[in-house]
Design a protein around this nucleic acid. Structure first.
Lengths: 186, 186
DNA sequence: CTGGATGGACCGAACGATCGGTACAGTTTC
DNA sequence: GAAACTGTACCGATCGTTCGGTCCATCCAG
């Protein structure tokens, strides 16, 4: 039961947590009903498309959150190092220091094609953003592509490892390593 | 329908593919029945514990496969570089070049505590194996720990990114980078 | 100011389908 | 004949979904 209910965003925040914890298939409507405090019928009032639409809405919410807290610093102006720091701080918060899974990891499994393409779009946008950061630090384009992919891989991988080990340290170390090395001159 | 049915290992191989594709919650008994060609009664004859026991058996099979194809080279004798090459080749095959997900990623979501602890054990064992490889290459223990975790993260992360993008290239690049850099002197 | 109509938010109860799981009577295999 | 195995039919529970309807705030007519 996170955030206020009855507002669409409040509902979606609870929903997002649930999806992150159990994946699309692992979350039942009854569970969603409990978490949001809404009856099943009410859920269908807000999301006529059912569970699938709820998943898409969560992806959309995550997208707008990323827009404000990640893409904005990434593609904004200012020192690349400072921008990177903002991005990493935001992501560290979003993943609760490594204790919450990533939607990009868990949603494609049972999700609809729409969800999958949303995942793909976000990944591409993230990669582009990281690339931009490296370019702005004065490194060549080829290196930027490699590092951007590496950052994505490090974040996703460390989240998976952290979840598997039941220990957030790998994620924390990955974030720290990114902060240290991501923009380092070749 | 992969491998021969009717042999326990054949059943489990089909089952493993299914779990890797859809996660624990995403696979239904009817689907398992289709894939293995066995009726539910037969499935429950082989796995009296039901779906949960099937998942555990798949984890166990993956464990013995790792034992033979990954841990053996890792912890055996011979040039570390050659051992690393065997390990990476085996893993590349297991993940079908990056087109199949990792059980360590998808199973913890809906899996039982037993499955989760199996995942944890495998991760720890993998990390230990990678560590051993680095140590044998003459690098210090602290560096070995960092690189071993990095290898795990790179493999898992690139699989997630590859799945999300629908493109196996990130995984291929990650394997290539490991082959190139993992044992490189500091 | 009042009355009725409108429409959104919400809910209890139930839908058909499918879930994971079982009982049991064969059928194979040795 | 015994043990291993399997097909069929079935179970209660839960799945995602829908129906019928209540509440209540808003708005408009008189």
């Amino acid at each position: 039961m996170s955030g206020e209910r009855s507002t669409r965003e409040g509902i979606l925040l609870g929903l997002m947590d649930e999806f992150r914890g159990c994946g699309f298939d692992g979350v039942s409507l009854s569970r969603i009903s409990e978490v949001t405090g809404l009856g099943k019928a009410s859920l269908y009032h807000h999301f006529p498309g059912g569970k699938g639409e709820m998943a898409e809405a969560v992806m959309a919410l995550a997208g707008t959150w990323l827009e404000a807290n990640v893409f904005a610093p990434m593609e904004g102006s200012g020192e690349p190092a400072a921008r990177l720091a903002s991005v990493l701080k935001a992501l560290d918060g979003f993943y609760a220091g490594g204790s919450k899974s990533c939607l990009l990891d868990v949603m494609p499994l049972g999700g609809s094609p729409a969800v999958r393409s949303a995942v793909k779009a976000v990944l591409q946008r993230l990669q582009g953003g990281f690339e931009r950061l490296v370019l702005d630090a004065g490194l060549p384009k080829a290196e930027a592509r490699v590092r951007a992919e590496g950052a994505l891989v490090a974040l996703q991988g460390s989240l998976v490892v952290a979840r598997g080990l039941g220990d957030t340290a790998p994620f924390a170390r990955a974030v720290k390593a990114l902060r240290r090395d991501f923009l380092r001159p070749a």
